[in-house]
Design a protein around this nucleic acid. Structure first.
Lengths: 154, 154
DNA sequence: TGATTAAGTTGCAATGTGCAACCTAGTAGG
DNA sequence: CCTACTAGGTTGCACATTGCAACTTAATCA
């Protein structure tokens, strides 16, 4: 039992993917974030647009706040209301969200989703998320290789 | 009940994030994929390196195969063995995996993870996953805007 | 032929999820 | 100022998912 927990924690320390999933990998968490990115802020908004059960929503919002991904700010003009807003840490999940969305669009739904993210200046859609080299050139899969960190160039 | 299911399906059709999560959002699925990207192929390899319960692993591998993310190929030289290998659809999840990993590295574990993905030619690490415009220029958050698809430029 | 290995399956206990009803503080209307 | 309503929860209970350990089955090895 203690062993099992220990093992789990050990993994979390080693693998940032496991660590990330620990905080945003639960069912509904990502969809809540998608909602937040699209402007949802209030409990009832999330509840009605996602159709999620109230107790689960309450639990997930609490965890996202605990983990510093959402901020929880009571509205000073109506003290019943609470605004949940993405923190910098939360906003930084945008590449994950976009990658996942583009993958889903390409391989599953085939229907382009809405709304769409554009460059404010040019009004043109952003590029697909892709692996690039340090100079920003797109890399194909056969140009990539896994390397042990110790063998990295200086 | 039928209503609820219908509503769910409706959402899946509309939102590619929900659709994507339906196939890769279950507990362990992403960690299995991480393993696959790092070269794991066999049941016992996944089981021992991830420490996942055998029945769950069996279930997840099955679902990933069903969804066309992993292929299941019996080894012709040892008919006990089965190789699970990423399909093109699976390999295309690399941006999602890398984004998530980089986010975890930046905001949670703070420890750089291993191994590292490099450009095979230059041996240099790939760039952080970022939102870019159509020409590959990185965009900051305040340069971005959500737009209804109907208002897109031609 | 007997031991070992790869890839599962099964039974059961613990945990997580979903629904509906309820609760509480604050606001709005008369 | 008293009643109704609203925002954001909590609670109780049924059902589904997860996790562990033991077992199975087919193939290979000694």
């Amino acid at each position: 039992m203690a062993l099992d927990l220990e093992r789990h924690r050990e993994m979390l320390r080693q693998c940032s993917i496991a660590a990330a999933l620990e905080t945003v990998g639960e069912r509904w968490s990502f969809l809540i974030l998608r909602g937040a990115f699209n402007g949802l802020q209030h409990f009832e908004e999330f509840q009605s647009t996602l159709g999620i059960a109230r107790n689960i929503l309450s639990n997930r919002l609490g965890r996202l706040v605990e983990n510093g991904i959402l901020g929880r700010e009571p509205d000073p003009t109506d003290r019943r209301r609470v605004a949940y807003r993405l923190t910098d840490k939360g906003l930084d999940l945008l590449p994950v969200l976009l990658s996942l969305r583009q993958w889903g669009e390409k391989w599953i739904s085939a229907l382009p989703s809405n709304p769409v993210l554009v460059d404010r200046a040019t009004r043109r859609q952003i590029a697909p998320m892709a692996v690039r080299d340090a100079d920003g050139r797109m890399l194909t899969r056969d140009e990539l290789e896994w390397l042990d960190r110790s063998e990295l160039e200086a």
